[in-house]
Every structure is written in structure tokens, then in C-alpha cells.
Design a protein around this nucleic acid. Structure first.
Lengths: 248, 248
DNA sequence: AACCCCACTTGATGTCGATCAAAGCACTGA
DNA sequence: TCAGTGCTTTGATCGACATCAAGTGGGGTT
């Protein structure tokens, strides 16, 4: 599924993931050179706001390391996370100079930035970049729509299970499955961030996680370290179709 | 905002909107000729399901006339609408042969279809098409994310007001504003479809519409015909930032 | 006219998650 | 060591929306 696809992508290039994600495998040396001239790195601390909605964006960027969130806030302070940025994900929009969302670093975050104008010119001359960006955007659209189903129709328990399943699945593909088929991972988000993502309050998130633990669906060590003894039991709680899953 | 942008677009070409939306203003005669060879039209009745999620899609298409909905359904029948297709909107995805959503005609619907393989080849040779598609997809992503905020954080009343505002604004730009600044339009959706869009039940939709009528925010004639006496009052109910609106 | 059908409205009641409030717990720095 | 702070858990209560259950009313058919 799209949301999982997105989360399973990861860096394949030490120096700059944008080459792979935005320029694609077909990129040749000239393109790399072009990119090398325009790029610069920036690092942010956990909790720092990278971009405020409404800011002027004179760059586009790609996450190199760390996790960031995309979120929207209403006047009265209600906020909804609309995207999770993981390494290799793209930020910014060619052809628009105003940021539409807040971008907040969840962990220490390194981004590889490109000045927007030259990047746009590069896109004109290098069809692969545009094509790769189109594929990435379509994946994000699928992810957003999957999330709409979650926000609109799932119960709190299903929402939590879905989020855990996505994180577990991503980490599982990163070879963190323990010998006996258990999946173990650390939650990269606070309870509040999870609540903002799921359209819940942090208390409800906490209660539902406790409930899943009580019911033996997950095990908790500390506040962040999660063990999933049987992935299939977690998936049963998500409300999703589970056919054809790796963990069935 | 993005969602409104999307809804204000309309056909600018009698024979085939895809030329304008997907090929963009820079398209030359050759591109038009190419498209002419591959396209064919299909018409559906209101209520008909055009595509089932999981179907093989050997075509991409563009809405010529009418309204369709994109929706996702869970095993137990809960459904969430994830997009509204209006004239000139694009359906389908280059590079994927399986439909990810149900597409249902809300009104009588005419689509202009292109066989997928030739369309993909055309995209390879004609960068403008890909660039236009990228812009459209980015707009849809913004719309989806705006909808995520609505689904996750808005109250039932705000959801209804937001939906009415979007429809009103679209129709207003289509010059349906009556002399005294009132906005008048017909709802293109049933209460149930609105509920599926907003993540509510049809009863709640009905009650909230009644409440807005009681409070004088809207006037109702029959079940579908709506008059908005003061757009600003409706906008106040949406919970959105209202700065810079045409109707302020 | 009489009937049905379907979309819609309205009412009564129930429940899930929000809200308000108070601890608990790990970590920091003095 | 101890207070201070931020994140989390848990409890009590409330309220918005869902659910269940009758109606209503317009449009079409016979």
C-alpha cells in the first residue's frame, strides 16, 4: 500500500538522497554535477520549527537524516499533522514560493537544500527529475488518501493500531525483526504528535496504547520501546484488509 | 487555497479538456493530433460505479461533464470519500494498472479516456504533459491535506459549513452570484454522499444543515437548493482563516 | 387519485472520545 | 539529594456525534 511504500523508502546514497529520489536511477554525471553546485545542508534540533506556514520558500529540500512532521494549524490552535517526512522525502513545491504547512523537526534533522529557481530550471532541462517528482507526489497523494480513511472512519483503537503497524512494518523492512518473528521498534513520536497525526487527544492515545498492551497485542518497555509479538494480531486491529501481507 | 483552486477550474476546450489540463498552454498542434488519435468518450448514468477499486485500469481519463466521487471502502462497509471529480479533473495514474479507489458517477458523467500505454509513451516524449500532471497532482495533494485537517479536527458544524463554502465559492466564480451578493446553488450531492465526504453520518449532516438554516446562515428551498445570504457568515462557521477572501 | 419509493428530517437514547484534573516517572541541573 | 520540568498515565465526568427508530414530503407510476 502507498503509505507503507512511502515509509519503506530510505537513503541509498550517502551524499545526497535527492539524486536518487528526484533525479532517479537514470541520472547521469552531468545532472549530479549540476545538483552539486546548487545544494547546501542545514541541520535542526529536535523540536525546532524548520518552516512556518506562510513563510517564503526560496528553496526545495530533501530529508537526509531524521524525522520531521508537516502540519496545519487552525486559528484557535487545533492542529492536524498532514504528513511525516522521513529520510529521502522531498519538501517544497516547484512553482510556489509560500510554504503551505509548518515543518517541525521531531528528531535532530538534516536536510539537503536546493535554491528553488535553479532547481526549477534544472527540472525544465531534465525530464527525469520531473518524472521522479511526479511519482513521489502520486505516492504521497495515495498516502494522504489512505490517511483520510483513517481520520474519517476509524475508531481510536484502529487508528493507533494502524499507526503502530505502519511504523512496525517500516522498521521490519529495515531488518529489525527479531529471530522469532517479533517486531521491535522505538516510537519516533511523542503521544501528542501521535494524537495530532491521528486526529485524537494525547490522553486517548495513551489510553488506547495501554489497552492494546493490556490485551497483549503489544508489549511496552518504557514509554517508547514497543514489541509486537504477533504482527497478525496487530494487523487485525487496524480494520484494514490484511490479505497478502508479509506477516499473515 | 488549494481545495478551492481545484474546484474553480473548468473546461476551457470544447472537444477535450485533457489538452488543457494535461498538455498545458504550451501544447502545439502535433500534441493535439497525437491525443486525438488515442482518445474515446464514455458516458455513465448517475449512481453508476465507473471503476471498482482493484479493477485493472488500461486507460487514464479526464472528466468532461458531470461529477464523480473517489472513495475508499473498508471490509465492513464503512466508506470515506477521498476526492471529488469535477470537469477537467484527471483520473488514473500513469505507471499503475490497478485502480486504488472506487469511482462513482454522482450525476450523469462523460469522461474522455486515453489508452494508458500510448498515453505513457506520449508523456515520455512530451514533457509538458508530465509537468502539467505534476502541477495537478500537487494541487490534489494540497486539497487532500486540507481535507485531512477537516476530517481530523473540525466539528460537524464546521465540516458542513466548509463543504457548503467550497461549493458556494466554486459556483460563485462560475458567475452564479445573484445581484445583492447572495450566492445561490444546488447541492450536487446527497446527504449520504456529503456524510461520506465529511466523515459523518447522514443524520448528523441533516441535523447540522437544519441548524445552519435555523440560525439564518443559509436558506433552503426544497432539499438541494441553497441560498447563502451573507458569504462572510458562512465562512465564519468554517473555522478557517478568512483573511483575504473575496467575500470578506 | 392512490400508491410507493426514496431522500430526507426529526426524536430518543447510547457511547466513544474529549475535557478537566491529578498523579507518576524519568531526567536535569543545582 | 531534591526540586523542577516535560512526558505520560489514569480517573471522573461531560458532550458531540452515532445509532436506532419513526415519521415527512415530493416525484413518479399505475
Amino acid at each position: 500500500m502507498a503509505f507503507q511504500e512511502k515509509l519503506t523508502t530510505h537513503i541509498e546514497c550517502e551524499s545526497c538522497p535527492i539524486r536518487h529520489r528526484a533525479v532517479c536511477a537514470k541520472c547521469d554525471v552531468d545532472e549530479l554535477e549540476l545538483l552539486a553546485d546548487m545544494k547546501y545542508y542545514r541541520t535542526y534540533d529536535a523540536g525546532q520549527t524548520v518552516i512556518w506556514s506562510g513563510d517564503t520558500m526560496d528553496f526545495v529540500a530533501s530529508v537526509v537524516e531524521g524525522i520531521a512532521t508537516l502540519s496545519q494549524t487552525m486559528e484557535d490552535g487545533r492542529t492536524q499533522m498532514v504528513g511525516l517526512l522521513l529520510p529521502s522525502d522531498f519538501v517544497g513545491r516547484p512553482g510556489r514560493d509560500e510554504a503551505a504547512y509548518d515543518v517541525v523537526a521531531t528528531t535532530r534533522l538534516t536536510m539537503c537544500c536546493f535554491r528553488r529557481k535553479p532547481f526549477e530550471e534544472l527540472m525544465e532541462n531534465t525530464p527525469h527529475i520531473g518524472q521522479r517528482l511526479l511519482q513521489m507526489t502520486l505516492d504521497e497523494l495515495d498516502a494522504a488518501r489512505e490517511w483520510m480513511l483513517l481520520l474519517g472512519r476509524k475508531t481510536a483503537r484502529e487508528k493507533i493500531a494502524s499507526l503502530l503497524a505502519i511504523i512496525a512494518r517500516r522498521d521490519a523492512t529495515l531488518n529489525l525483526i527479531s529471530p522469532k518473528g517479533k517486531v521491535v521498534f522505538d516510537l519516533p513520536l511523542t503521544r501528542e504528535a501521535m494524537a495530532d497525526y491521528l486526529g485524537l487527544t494525547l490522553e486517548t492515545v495513551s489510553r488506547q496504547i495501554s489497552a492494546l498492551r493490556r490485551d497483549g497485542v503489544i508489549e511496552l518497555e518504557g514509554k517508547r520501546h514497543v514489541t509486537v509479538p504477533q504482527m497478525s494480531r496487530l494487523l487485525d486491529e487496524t480494520g484494514d484488509d490484511t490479505d497478502g501481507g508479509v506477516f499473515a
